[in-house]
Design a protein around this nucleic acid. Structure first.
Lengths: 219, 219
DNA sequence: AAAGATGATGTCAGTTAGTGACAATTTTGA
DNA sequence: TCAAAATTGTCACTAACTGACATCATCTTT
């Protein structure tokens, strides 16, 4: 938790901006309005964000992190399905997180009318992908620079994005209801299908590979 | 070739904008400069593009299409490797296409310093992904709405993006040289690894599945 | 070929996103 | 507690972008 302060204000600005975007649309929302709603001067807004649209990025990130973040604590000896299910159970998701998720979902359904939002969303997903590289490299004891590790991160991140988009549209535009468990299950399935490396099942200590044992000291 | 006119001017503007961006950076390039270089009024530029950065989008699209476009003519009975190799051979890539590819590659290597460029690139890749949905749906006789088709399109598009990025950086920043055949091979490999559906090998008419035979007329 | 319709472009004025400079304020740290 | 450092506000300014309207090219129809 290093630079938490900055991230906090970014997130609150994002919430206000998102509400305005959802209510009035991107074009009809001014930087001044976002500033006023956030209780900051407009100048300060531009110190936190490079553009009007990107104000909602922290929200997208937070939404993605609802599942992605959990992969950081994914123990090596449990499968993806088991882990995500487990997380949902003990996880009394904070009310503010639910609020954030709802806002993000509303934004996602606006992407066709507001192309600028899609760009922000894709950038957020790119961040997730970069994060995913670390997770996979750790889980497999491979280098973060390994092309196959990066490929796996990219395909998994893409699958998570697709689930997010699909479920959002199904929920808002077609009125379907999802429990957290259902979403977790869909997510786990998609991740499994998309992974190009064997990370979804428990990773067993490599008992059969001699190289794993420490070499006996020759002295 | 419906609205080719518009696309043509968009591409030429993109070329000029890209050269300016590469030479002077995004911030130091003004809309007026892009307009002047393209021989158009500034107002017209804003009629073709929604923002300064997005001026290069057609170039990114053209670059992606160098391989992706070929997948549109991918016969069902040849493997991905064979097809891409074949394309390279008979393909006396037009000199302007090479020029475009070079410009795109140069832009890709600037993405770390210029985050706005990355957003544009990701949007271009998203377009490719949407296109990929059609290709896969056609090849497998499945619906474009099928989640698994869309998932496969997403993972493949992600892998193509990664190859583009990786090869660009290797070429420009680390001075590696690639032949078109090499790139085609890397691309084919990555696509194969990333596909979540069996589209990379020749698609055989489904002789074993009874459902494929037309039902005998019962009359 | 003339003429009218349609659409693309230029001009210019106006709005608003976004920046630089500096003063005021808050936070930090010894 | 006091000074250094970081954050914010104010204000003037630049440049991205839009609206309105005139002009010009293109295309169709007769």
């Amino acid at each position: 938790m290093a630079n938490t302060r900055r991230e906090d204000t970014r997130l609150t600005v994002a919430r206000h901006a998102a509400r305005l975007f959802v209510k009035n649309g991107l074009a009809a929302t001014s930087g001044a309005q976002i500033a006023a709603a956030s209780g900051l001067s407009e100048r300060t807004i531009w110190r936190y964000f490079a553009s009007k649209e990107s104000c909602v990025e922290p929200l997208f990130l937070a939404a993605s992190m609802q599942f992605h973040g959990k992969l950081r604590q994914w123990p090596r000896n449990v499968s993806i399905e088991a882990h995500l299910q487990e997380c949902c159970k003990l996880d009394g998701t904070a009310p503010e997180d639910i609020e954030d998720a709802l806002l993000a979902v509303l934004l996602l359904t606006r992407m066709t009318e507001e192309p600028a939002l899609r760009a922000v969303w894709l950038v957020a997903c790119y961040q997730v992908e970069q994060d995913m590289i670390d997770i996979i490299a750790d889980r497999l004891d491979r280098s973060k620079k390994d092309f196959d590790v990066r490929l796996c991160a990219a395909t998994i991140a893409a699958s998570m994005r697709l689930i997010d988009e699909t479920i959002s549209i199904a929920a808002i535009d077609h009125g379907q209801i999802f429990t957290t468990e259902q979403v977790a299950q869909e997510m786990a399935q998609a991740i499994r299908k998309a992974s190009t490396l064997p990370i979804c099942d428990p990773i067993m200590p490599n008992v059969f590979g001699a190289a794993t044992f420490p070499e006996r000291d020759k002295s």
